[in-house]
Structures are given as structure tokens and as C-alpha cells.
Amino acid sequence: MAAGKRGNVYVVVGMAGAGKTSFLERVATYLERSGKPPYIINLDPAAMRLPYDANIDIRDTVDYKSVMSEYCLGPNGAILTSANLFATRFDKVVSICDLRAQDYEYFFIDTPGQIEIFTWSASGIMITDMLSAHFRTTILFILDTPQCQNPQIFMSNMLQAVSVLYRSRLAVILVFNKIDVASHAPLVKLLSDMSLFQSELEGVSDFSSTLTQSLHLILQEFYEHLKIVGVSAATGSGVEEVISVLEDVGAG
């Protein structure tokens, strides 16, 4: 890590419905209770209500509904445009965070529901680049564990995560959410066990075994450099582990 970077920023990304916001709520409550309240920035202009108190909220700056009518955009285009508008002022956010870095140990960024608004847009790149230039930035990739029980979806998710790794060039932590519904342990085992992975995929995909083998090679390498943690935003189990992983990463 380059010297002079202070503050740990965690960018929470994940598929719509993976539970980014509820995860953040759970982590925030836990941190508050342990006397280290986090600094939270919400980047989702279309969020109806936030269960946590956001310190900076994109909705205070950009009104997504009026963007929709002003620029004659559909809902999707309006979210994208709001994010772009906000990105132009993001240097202010960075300087605020900079000032706050002595008081706060954890900075979290909540992103829009659809992952591609953040990972496949010019504004998303700008924001992660700006953040990583100033702070120690880590991506928390939230996964919907019950959904991942389908091996093909699990595969898709993992490819997404690798894609995010390359796109942002930041460290990625995989957070398996909703482990109260389905356990993440078998999935982690899949990552390290080739033959298991292959037999799981064989039943459901049309792809040749050599392809799944090679894809597994990618995942295996990915797994080597990966921190994985399971959590349930609903029940709160696993939050301690999340925090200790975050601390690990933060320590450097």
C-alpha cells in the first residue's frame, strides 16, 4: 500500500437483491454498538428508504425522479444519469472523507441495485479510481447464497466477481449473505475441489468437461487470493467474522 493513504473504504457491490443494504445495516449496527460507528455513503439514487443513517446520500444532491422527467429518461437511464451527475462532484465527497478519516475507521459505500450501474459505467470507474487514489479501498462483493446453490448461477457470480476484480483492480472480499437460509460452506468447498465442481456442473450445463475444468482453474486461482466470509444480514450471524476480515484487510 502506498504511504499516505489513510482510512479504509469498503465499496459494497452485488447483484440486485443480494442484500447489500441490509448487510450494511447489520454491519453498521454492530459497529455502532462496539463504539466505532462507520461513515456511510449511499450512491443509490433510487433507494426508497435506507435502514441506516447515511452520512452522505446521493439523494440529497440528485433527485432521481426529476432527472427522469427533466431529461426524459426511463428509470434505468435516470439512475445512470444521476450516478454520472453525482460523480462529477465526487471530489467533494473524497475531501469530506479525507477530513473525516481521523474520526472514522470504516467508510462504506452502498451502490445501486444493479451491479452494472457501478461496474459498467464511466462514473463507477471514476468513483473507484478516486477512492483508491486516496484511501485503502476494498470491494465487498455480496452474494445471494441461496441463489448460488444452483451451480450455474454460482459460476456466473464468480465470473462476475473476477470481472469486478479486473475492472477495478482492487482487492475483493466475497461476502456470502443469507447464510441463515443456505450454508455457504459447500460453495467454498466447490471452489477448491475440482472433481466436485465438475460433477456438480455436469448435470446442469451443456458445456464440455474440459471447459468446466479450465474455468475451475480460474476460480481456483481466484480463490487463492480471496477472503471469503459468510454472514446473515437477517439474523446477524457471522457479523463478527466480517468485522475481523475487514480489520485484517484494513491493517494491510
Partner: peptide
């Protein structure tokens, strides 16, 4: 990153 994205659609 783009390739992996496209690939996950392809696999699905």
C-alpha cells in the same frame, strides 16, 4: 472484465 461478463451470459 468485459470478456468475463460476456462469458457468464454465454454460460447461462
Amino acid at each position: 472484465a468485459g470478456c468475463l461478463q460476456a462469458q457468464s451470459a454465454m454460460l447461462h
